[in-house]
Write a protein that binds this DNA or RNA. Structure first.
Lengths: 218, 218
DNA sequence: CCCTGTGAAGCAGTTCACAGCG
DNA sequence: CGCTGTGAACTGCTTCACAGGG
């Protein structure tokens, strides 16, 4: 069982996985680090170093067994265990996330939706009824929810995070553009769309100014 | 004019900006690095080092002037120039992004929407008519669009990226879970929702296993 | 002979700690 | 005397380069 993988490597494992799924689908039995690097948009040395943290599974002179490697990455990421998800906040973003197929596919079924606005409670999205946020602890318990997605306005985000933690959720993904305080036993990741655009703004303007090079590629 | 700011710092500037906007709204005239660090969820030394790349704007013994600093960060990020945005792909995610208010607010007005499916062309979302993807070059040119957001399925993403680049878009934000090839004069950022969940999966499982510590907080 | 696995070098980002200014 | 600004130490990630197995 793989332990203690560097953060930077963990962040790349899902990308390798995606490439490997494609390779498996197209019938490839093995991949070299160079080929996988090409698909994942990184360099070959990084691939080898990253995979070495999972244990040793490559064959010298040949490459890595696609299926075996898929299994190893899945194990490292804990994908063998299904992690049911609740989405909190059924505004535009929450609804879009609920309808987005990419989660359930990959071991993260959305099993509950909640909102604080009573006029949204009772709506059905993708076959799931929207519950009132008061029901959160009960839902987490009954449905064994382990991941909470916060898609509420910033103002509500911290109290939602507290509720999720109290209810026993094991990790949180937040789309609210605000800093959240959670116990460090609960991993938290943040995605802020406006932040991403602002970062692009820097490199874009830099590109325009006639001075040295720059730009994040891939 | 601030040049050559480290990537890690650039990625934090929007976060400081958010905190500063709040501070300005609540009437604060100055902030210390410690106070700003608290709000932004980082440590004080990092705040000072980051801000030092913008030039020197703090007053020793007092702190930073909130408005002045806001202006400096805005300049560094190029927020003085409005950057019109086109969203490509009007599925669930594209529609949600179109309706999400957080962009226009912050200098990134959404001015065009396109899709390849003819039955979506002509729909109106937030007062903007969906155009056919063939119109992309014309729209980019007429509306002086500088940012393209890709919200299409993976399979279409590379060809959309190529079209955006050819049309003259200056930076790209992609939600497609695939590696895109763009010239390195066009900054590209990627957001992949399923990847985020898989990363959480690692830390979550790790938390469960009784061994050392872990977990990303903030 | 090819491709992995990995020490070692190199580089970027973070944190420390303190000199110096208001 | 408080808080900034910054050299210097440190930590962690990336890249190189090559030994060694199939």
């Amino acid at each position: 069982m793989a332990r203690d993988i560097p953060d930077a490597t963990v962040a790349r494992l899902p990308i390798y996985r995606r490439s490997l799924v494609d390779l498996a689908a197209s019938g490839a039995g093995t991949v070299s680090s160079a080929a996988l690097a090409e698909l994942a948009g990184v360099n070959a040395a990084k691939v080898r170093k990253d995979l070495s943290y999972l244990g040793t599974y490559g064959v010298r002179g040949v490459g890595y067994d696609v299926k075996l490697l898929l299994g190893q990455i899945g194990d490292a990421l804990g994908l063998d265990v299904v992690a049911p998800v609740v989405i909190v906040g059924m505004g535009n973003l929450g609804q879009a996330l609920a309808r987005y197929g990419g989660f359930s596919n990959r071991g993260f079924p959305i099993v509950a939706l909640v909102d604080a606005a009573s006029d949204r409670v009772g709506d059905e999205v993708e076959g799931i009824e929207v519950s009132h946020v008061d029901q959160l602890p009960a839902l987490v318990d009954e449905l064994e929810i382990s991941v909470g997605i916060i898609a509420t306005p910033s103002a509500a985000a911290q109290s939602v995070a507290d509720m999720l933690v109290d209810a026993g959720v094991r990790s949180i993904l937040s789309f609210a553009p605000t800093i959240l305080q959670v116990p460090d036993t609960v991993p938290l990741r943040k995605v802020d769309l406006a932040t991403e655009l602002q970062i692009l703004g820097y490199y874009q303007q830099r590109e325009a100014a006639p001075e040295s090079d720059a730009g994040k590629s891939a």
